[in-house]
Design a protein around this nucleic acid. Structure first.
Length: 117
RNA sequence: CCCCUGCACGGGGUCACCGCGAGAGUAACCCUCUCGAGGAAAGUCCGGGCACCCCCAAGCCACCGGCCGGAGAAUAUCCGGGCUGGCCGCUCCAGCCAGACCAACAGGGCCACAGAAAAGAACCACCUGCGCAAGCAGGAACGGGUGAAAAGGUGGGGUAAAAGCCCACCGCCGCUCUCAGCAAUGAGACGGGCGAGAGGAGAUGGCAACAUCGCCUCGAAGGUAACCUGCCGGAGGGUGCAAUACCGAAUAGGGACUCCCAGCGACGCGGCUUGCGUCCGACGCGGAAACGCCGAGGAGAGUCCGGGUUGGCAGCUCGACGCCUGAUGCAAAUCAGCGCGCAGAUGAAUGGUGACCACUCCCGCAAGGGAGCACAGAACCCGGCUUAUACGUGCAGAGGAGAC
RNA sequence: GCCCAUGUAGUCCAACGGUAGAGACAGAGGACUUAAAAUCCUUCCAGUACCAGUUCGAAUCUGGUCAUGGGCA
């Protein structure tokens, strides 16, 4: 069964997640907040200009993170998890890391965050 | 031929798997189809469209622009022409590039230091007079020196000494005329270095202030208007799609009515009352003050009303649009044909991965291997400007005559 | 996205268009002290964010880049 995933939209949601648990990897950080009333998962992406660079680099970083997350969790029928908000924050080396490593890091980080996949 | 610099144009392609946004096919889901970043999307420097507010009569203030002509909705835009400057050590021609390129006699301000003096110039030296001398008075911008800048240059005349004071040539300036040009402007001719201003006396007009006219004497001439300013021209101004319009929860707050509770300083009206009037009166507002104005309950329940936040929806993409073809024009551009094309997101889609082919570089005899592939991401929409840009292509970076 | 403001020593900041640049704190040295703090004296540190233009002359005036900061739902 697939996981129900919703995009986080409001600024307040992102601010709330800053208080949550942090799961770091080489190229990104996941901030996890327990939200029991959330039926599935809420997920947001942050690519700051200070960490990543100009607008083209920010777009590319966000799209790669989305693609990796979709492949590992959102479109994976085996994935399971609920009641969590995840904010995935890009770090500087993200654009230099190969896709396979990003997949590996994402699996590991999501497992640590409480999502099985 | 190579390198570098500048300008213009272009600024990757194909396939597979998995995804995203919008629209259509449907009333909706599934599903299918179509479309889905740029020349700068950037900086936000100009100009508009559009929306709201203010003023809606004109003018002043403030603002913007400034060679001429044309284009354009408009501009600090574009095109053509002129002039000036740079390339360039002297001159001229042609070439390329650049130019915020009206006025310094409307007026004011400023021009440090140096220098006698920085704008109605006398320090030294010069000349004249007085004086034994020191010096004083006057004449006089030729020389010295200072400076970014010192009141045209050369020669001659002239003089006490001098000076455009006069003359010749040259330069510059403005006026007039002729020719060319729509014009800016250019070529030539003629006359002139006069004028502006100050002072004086006079005539005419006028009650007067004053105006006009000619005469006499003196007599300025630098730079800066991206300092104030004057002149000419322009546009109603301001805010900006986070404009603006509509829909509209929950919570809090506002208003009206009803119910409930409490009913309080004094006096009067009133049969009584929670009613009415007057005085006093906390807090508040105006005022320097005097004083004036306003003028009293709640902690509750219900109903209704309007404001308004998160949110939603409209604005939101076909338009002064781009390409192509034809006509006009040196060109910017305009007109015609309708032949082709058309992103609309809102924590924000336009992608991720893999393979192959282009292109460039490196290693290698080769097979092949490795690395790179710029600047950069729409956010209401247009016209410009500016800045960034690997690589590829094209063009230019240059010449002639004379003098030394 | 839109609208503004500001850039000067290590830091905070002055400076009519005129020798290119004042202070304060900090730093260094010295005096005082047994030693330190405080205080006093001396000294060091800028070429005014960058690039052009106007001007005899620019931190200042004008234009353009870059950086930083702020406001608007």
């Amino acid at each position: 069964m697939a996981v129900q995933v919703r995009r986080l939209m409001k600024r307040q949601d992102f601010v709330d997640c800053k208080l949550g648990r942090r799961v770091p990897t080489q190229s990104f950080v996941i901030q996890v907040l327990e939200k029991p009333e959330e039926a599935g998962l809420g997920v947001g992406f942050t690519t700051s200009s200070a960490a990543v660079g100009n607008a083209v680099a920010r777009n590319r970083a966000r799209r790669r993170l989305k693609a990796v997350f979709d492949e590992v969790c959102r479109l994976n029928p085996a994935a399971a998890g609920q009641g969590l908000w995840l904010v995935i924050v890009a770090k500087a080396p993200i654009l230099k890391i190969e896709h396979a490593y990003l997949l590996k890091d994402m699996r590991k980080a999501l497992a640590e965050a409480g999502v099985s996949c």
